[in-house]
């Protein structure tokens, strides 16, 4: 057989063909590179509950409602978030007057927090995360990125 069609040659051509037919879009690469801009100067909160996941956190549930509830925690803070299409409401416990910032890609939006620790926001499509606190005694905390 023509040596251009042996396994190794064919695999090498395939590698190029697949890249050319379905290249990584430039804007997607740029977003990935920009991920570093938001370098984490904050403690990463742990996801302890996600209504989209079952109890073991491995299998996606079929019976989740229209609102997705998530709970994140660090040693002394809990951040609860309810996500619906287009918006979120959340609550810090214990209630504190800490700055809360919604991050989407490289966009950051400061959110108002009431005296019960509650906040709300309009969200755009795409991944988001919350950053809570700053130079105060509790330090800064960030949730992992939430895919939605």
């Amino acid at each position: 057989m023509d040596e251009r069609f042996d396994d190794d040659s064919l695999l090498a051509v395939l590698a190029r063909v697949i890249d050319e037919a379905d290249p990584v879009p430039d804007d997607a690469r740029a977003t990935a590179v920009a991920a570093d801009m938001s370098g984490l100067d904050a403690e990463l909160a742990e996801l302890v509950f996600d209504s989209l996941l079952d109890e073991r956190g491995t299998t996606l549930r079929d019976d989740a409602g229209d609102v997705r509830s998530l709970t994140f925690t660090t040693g002394d803070r809990t951040i609860e978030v309810d996500l619906a299409d287009g918006g979120l409401v959340g609550r810090l416990s214990p209630a504190e007057d800490a700055p809360v910032v919604l991050e989407q890609g490289t966009t950051r939006v400061p959110l108002a927090v009431d005296d019960l620790g509650r906040f709300r926001a309009v969200v755009q499509p795409g991944p988001l995360r919350l950053r809570v606190g700053g130079a105060g005694p509790g330090g800064a905390v960030a949730t992992p990125w939430i895919t939605r």
Partner: peptide, 10 residues
């Protein structure tokens, strides 16, 4: 794709 790299970074 982006979320994958956000997670990698964190």
């Amino acid at each position: 794709f982006a979320a994958t790299f956000f997670r990698l970074n964190e």
